[in-house]
Structure formats: structure tokens, C-alpha cells
Simulated assay, not measured.
Amino acid sequence: MISVAFLSTPGLMDPLEPLLRRELPGLTCASWPEEASREAELAVCWKPQAGALAAMPNLKLIHSIAAGVDNILADPSVPDRPVCRIVDPDISVAMTEFVLWSTLYFHRDFDRVIDNARTGAWHRYAQRAPQDTRVGILGLGTLGTDAARRLVDLGFSVSAWSRSAKTADGIRTFSGAAALDAFLGEVDILVSLLPLTPSTLGLLNAERLSRLPKGAALVLCSRGEHLIADDLVALLRTGHLRGAVLDVFEREPLPADHPLWREPGVLVTPHMAAIASWMVIAQQIAENVRRLKRGEPLLNAVDRARGY
């Protein structure tokens, strides 16, 4: 049976080990940097230490425990081995719920009502029809497409931007770097669902966020590294942007003394938009181990050139 090494912050994968052992009887496990982990054939990762994967000579498969693999591929020393990610069918449902809630948070003025409640201010805002709120989705993959379709079902005016050309019923689509500014200029609520790649790192900076119409809001539930937080804060303080729901950050957990917690207009949530279940993670890793042994195509294999 294959040997596995867990590469993550201490304790993070404790729930995964017994589930993997149940799926793969006879599995041997170790955690980095234990000596046995260096001889493992399978690396199960979340933000592995730089250079760790390169120090595993028997490595046959690298597996993320999430949909994203940017935390693995950021290390230039990662060896040329298959990399796989997790695709939990319930993730799409959970992410869509979060996007719908965040959209309604701004569309129905809950952000303003909550602020008013702190001071006992009774003020009702004029209700807008959904079609009068323009929601823009950055990233039209599985998650972005599902969220966009549900927003269309609710009557919102929905557009989407993706790196390559895509189409979806009821959604105005934009593609390529040349179309990004035009897309941003027509968005009242911007939802980021992009993967993190070298081309999307720092994408949400002052130049691009300022392309949004005055009074627009941001919903970030992709990767914290997409956003230049200081640029967002500056645009909030000038009044160009209305607010932001931020679920992901460069450093997690977000330190309790971080100023974003107290920045007016910003709502911080603890990377809760969509979380894969440990059971699904164990099942998909185990299936890929079986496929690897049989020489079959792997589930959710990553195109390392694209980064996802």
C-alpha cells in the first residue's frame, strides 16, 4: 500500500487521516517534517513548506485538499509529478449561497441597515428591482457559472469575465485582458471567483478597482492574493467604493489586530464561503491512489501551465 505524507500547518489534517485509512487499508502515514514523510509516495498538501516536495525522492502524486493548487505551485522547486485537486459537488452549492447572500447584502442595503442599527437610526431605503443591480462575476468556471445562473434566475443583470471566451444563457460575457476594463465599468457588485495564477495575482488593485462605477461593492471569495487590500481601503475612504465582503486573505486566520476588521464598509468572514468535506477529500484522494496504481487517468488533474 502507498505511503502518505501530510504537508500543512500542524493539526490541520488530523480529521483526514482516519478517513483515509478507512478508504485505503494498510496506508502508512506521517506528517512533515517527520523522517518517514520524506520517503512517502503521496503528498497531501495545504500550503506545504517551500522545498519540502522536492525533498521527497519517492513521490508519485501531489494532492491538494482543496479546489485551489496555487499554494502548491507557488514553489518553483515542486517536482514534475501529477498534481490533483478536490472538486466537491457541494462546494458549488455552498459558494452560490454565499454569493447570493453577499449580493443581497448590498442590493437590499443590509450593510447600511446594520450600521444604522448600531446607533438606533430608523431609516428605510428605497427598494430596487433586481434588474437594476448589475452583478459582475470574475471567473466563469464551475463555481462562477452556477452562481451567475442563480443570480439570473433571481432577476439580476449579470455579466461575467473569463480569460478565454465562454458563453452562458442570460449572461453577458467578456473575455481576455482587453475586455476587462469594459466589464468592470458596468458592474455595481463585483464577485471574484477566479483561480489564483500568476496572471491573476494582485489583479484587484487600485487601477482596476477604480474602473468600477462610483458606489460599487466588492465580494471576494476566491483567493486573498487577488486583492491589494490597501488599494481597496483607499477607494473606500475616498467614497469611490461603497463596501466589501472579504472571505479570503493573504494571511489566514486574519490577525485579530488587523485593521480590515474595523474598516468601515468592510465585512470580514472567516474563509467560510465553501468548504469541502473531509469525507469527500478522503474519497477523492483514495480514488486517485487506486487510479494511479492501475495506470488510469486521475480525477481533477491540474494543468500546471494554466495553474488549475
Rank of each mutant, 00 (worst) to 15 (best):
P89V: 03
D90W: 00
D90N: 03
D90S: 03
I91Y: 13
I91F: 12
S92E: 01
S92K: 01
V93K: 09
A94P: 02
A94T: 08
A94N: 11
M95P: 07
M95R: 00
M95K: 01
M95L: 09
T96S: 13
E97F: 05
E97A: 07
F98L: 02
F98Q: 01
V99N: 07
V99Y: 01
V99A: 11
V99M: 05
V99T: 09
L100T: 01
L100R: 00
L100Q: 10
L100G: 05
L100D: 03
W101E: 02
W101D: 01
S102D: 02
S102E: 03
S102P: 08
S102K: 01
T103E: 02
L104E: 07
L104N: 04
L104S: 11
L104A: 11
L104C: 12
Y105H: 14
Y105M: 09
Y105D: 07
Y105L: 06
Y105P: 01
Y105K: 03
F106Q: 03
F106S: 05
H107L: 09
H107N: 04
R108G: 04
R108I: 14
R108V: 06
R108K: 13
D109A: 14
D109I: 00
F110N: 12
D111N: 15
D111E: 09
R112N: 08
R112M: 14
R112K: 14
R112L: 15
V113S: 08
I114R: 15
I114V: 02
I114Q: 06
I114M: 12
I114F: 00
D115Q: 06
D115P: 01
N116V: 05
N116F: 05
N116I: 00
A117D: 04
A117G: 04
R118E: 08
T119P: 01
T119G: 13
G120I: 10
G120T: 05
G120C: 02
G120L: 07
A121R: 13
A121S: 14
W122S: 11
W122N: 12
W122T: 09
W122E: 10
H123A: 10
H123Y: 15
H123N: 13
R124Q: 14
R124L: 08
Y125L: 12
Y125N: 11
Y125H: 15
Y125P: 06
A126S: 11
Q127A: 14
Q127V: 10
Q127Y: 06
Q127K: 14
Q127N: 10
R128M: 10
R128W: 08
R128V: 06
R128I: 04
R128F: 03
R128H: 14
R128S: 09
R128N: 08
A129P: 00
A129E: 11
A129D: 08
A129K: 15
P130T: 10
P130G: 10
P130M: 15
P130H: 06
Q131P: 00
Q131A: 11
Q131F: 05
Q131M: 07
Q131W: 08
D132Y: 06
D132K: 12
D132I: 00
T133S: 04
T133I: 12
T133H: 03
